[in-house]
């Protein structure tokens, strides 16, 4: 593990969004995700932090938990043998956004998803691109409405669910009572979770060697 800054030895670390993006991407890659999925994990972590969700615990749970079952996107209801990875399902939902397998027609049931909060950044991506408000249902209850007015969370208790049945449907015209979530440019992370994520991230880095150190710098003296 890299030497941690002394100021990080407190219990909480305040991180900027680029730092969150970098750490999440490196940790996902270190956990064995493909580069494309690791970059999406970075995007998702920043989005979650921006809207005040617990991005770090969610990401750590996703990266260190079960990978989830394979799934096949289909119109109306996706097919899978078991709970699917919330991150992969979210990415795929956005990829299929305007296709029959996506949510923009009459909605789609994804089924059981692990760490379902990971889906939200990708639902937001669809909303931004299609300019259509969407409701995310968790176990048949409205959980989040995403639209031009922001992110409206109806049930805070669902945020920490490790698994839930998820559906995504176009939102009706009526307004939601839930206020929009506030935006944040920075986010805290506990040192414990930070350490876990950095430990995962170590698996994508390469230890220094005499050859790598000599090649990275100038030939000759630095002083002039």
């Amino acid at each position: 593990m890299p030497n941690l800054p002394s100021s990080l030895l407190r219990d909480q670390i305040m991180m900027s969004q680029p730092e969150i993006m970098s750490l999440a991407c490196r940790a996902a890659r270190g956990a064995g995700y493909s580069w494309g999925m690791a970059e999406e994990a970075g995007f998702a972590a920043v989005w979650l932090a921006h809207y005040g969700f617990d991005w770090a615990d969610t990401l750590l749970a996703r990266l260190s938990g079960p990978r989830g079952s394979a799934f096949v996107p289909q119109s109306k209801a996706w097919r899978s043998a078991g709970p699917v990875c919330g991150l992969h399902a979210g990415v795929t939902l956005a990829d299929f956004a305007t296709l029959p397998e996506g949510p923009l027609g009459s909605g789609v049931t994804i089924g059981a998803a692990l760490d379902p909060v990971c889906l939200l950044p990708f639902v937001a991506r669809i909303v931004a691109r299609a300019d259509v408000p969407l409701d995310v249902y968790c176990d048949r209850h409205i959980w989040v409405r995403l639209g031009q007015t922001g992110v409206h969370l109806s049930d805070l208790n669902l945020n920490s669910r490790s698994s839930a049945m998820i559906s995504v449907r176009p939102a009706p015209a009526n307004k939601t009572d839930a206020p929009p979530r506030e935006h944040h440019q920075t986010a805290h992370v506990s040192k414990r979770v930070y350490d876990h994520l950095e430990t995962l991230a170590l698996h994508m880095t390469v230890p220094a060697t005499a050859q790598s150190l000599s090649g990275a710098g100038a030939a000759g003296s630095d002083s002039d």
Binding site: P2, R26, L202, M204, T205, V206, P207, A208, Q211, S212, G215, A216
Partner: peptide, 13 residues
């Protein structure tokens, strides 16, 4: 690649 010590990009042979 990314170096473990400084998290800096490097070029390996």
């Amino acid at each position: 690649y990314v170096s473990e010590d400084k998290l800096e990009p490097r070029l390996g042979e």
